[in-house]
Amino acid sequence: MSEIKKFMYINRRAPYGSIYALEGLEVVLIGAAFDQDCCMAFVGDGVFQLVRGQDSTQTGMKNFSPAYKALGDYDVNRLYVERESLAERGLSEDDLMELTWEDEDDDWAEKPSIRVVSREELARLMEEQDVLLNF
């Protein structure tokens, strides 16, 4: 399989309440080893995965939100967040973590990974993919 395909991982679940978010993230990190063109989409309760300031110490669960910051190292540089999903939940882009990637072709300049897009834009982006994976 030498041909590069466009993969989109669609995340629709909140973290902690179920295992979907963590498992989905692990699959992305594993899949990144196969040198494909990967991006992620956060829709519905999936947008809660990217909320800044998560601290699960008291609950005894592992806070895995720092791992999203490593996605840039794994060449997953595009994280699409649906604007309508944020608004419906009383959130805005300012509530999300600052996630960046380093552009090797631009003297390692740090660039933002999160792109807030409209529902319509996201639908079009989905249409461009070869493979859609859901969590």
């Binding site: 990190l29 990144a32 720092p66 910051k69 490593a70 190292d73 794994y74």
Partner: peptide, 15 residues
């Protein structure tokens, strides 16, 4: 400590 994951070998090498 920073990312809560053990990096893949490719990521480790680059870093």
């Amino acid at each position: 400590e920073e990312y809560q994951i053990a990096p893949a070998v490719r990521v480790l090498t680059k870093a």
